[in-house]
């Protein structure tokens, strides 16, 4: 994808509004309500390091998790909760669902994208793979479930080099 085309695509997916701000009082009430709902629904918050500190703090205080995408996926798969509330971007929710199909995976906003994910469309990637047969397909974790379904390996930035070295040896 050319840069300009990519940037236009990105801009079409950007949120229309600036992040919504709430007063301390409002956030306090919301946090209390979330604490109760988590118990009622046997749910746990799995938050990415890049989310608002208020979300990270609440995840910590309620026995949830803060991490990068690899650690988030692992935590979700190993935790006993029935519902995973994933605060991050869509591919993170999808990875949680792939690893725990029996669990309910909820996301606060399904329009939360990732430019790396948007930059790899399944139809284009299928053609790329078909044009280069006989190769091991390694995809970044920041891709859609559909792209992962075309891959042999998934990697994150924490282990990409180690995995590729392993595959090359």
């Amino acid at each position: 994808m050319e840069n300009q085309e990519f940037n236009h695509k990105i801009s079409r997916h950007l949120p229309a509004k600036a992040p919504q701000k709430f007063s301390d009082k409002e956030n306090q009430l919301l946090a209390d309500e979330i604490r109760q709902l988590l118990k009622q629904k046997n749910a746990v918050i799995i938050a990415h390091y890049y989310t608002d500190p208020l979300i990270q703090k609440l995840a910590e205080e309620t026995g949830g998790f803060i991490g990068d995408s690899l650690e988030m996926a692992r935590f979700g798969a190993e935790h006993a909760a029935k519902t995973l509330l994933v605060a991050g971007v869509r591919f993170m929710g999808e990875s949680a669902k792939i690893l725990s199909p029996e669990k309910t995976v909820l996301m606060p906003d399904m329009a939360a994208e990732c430019s790396l994910d948007l930059g790899c469309e399944p139809e284009e990637f299928k053609k790329f793979c078909a044009a280069n047969p006989g190769r091991i397909v390694v995809v970044y974790a920041n891709t859609s479930a559909e792209i992962k379904a075309l891959a042999d390996w998934t990697v994150t930035s924490s282990i990409a080099v180690d995995v590729v070295k392993h595959l090359a040896s």
């Binding site: 709430f22 919301l30 938050a47 989310t51 608002d52 509330l85 906003d109 939360a112």
Partner: peptide, 12 residues
Amino acid sequence: PWMKMNNLQNLR
């Protein structure tokens, strides 16, 4: 911009 779409209201 997408990570920052998450807030306590839409989590709730």
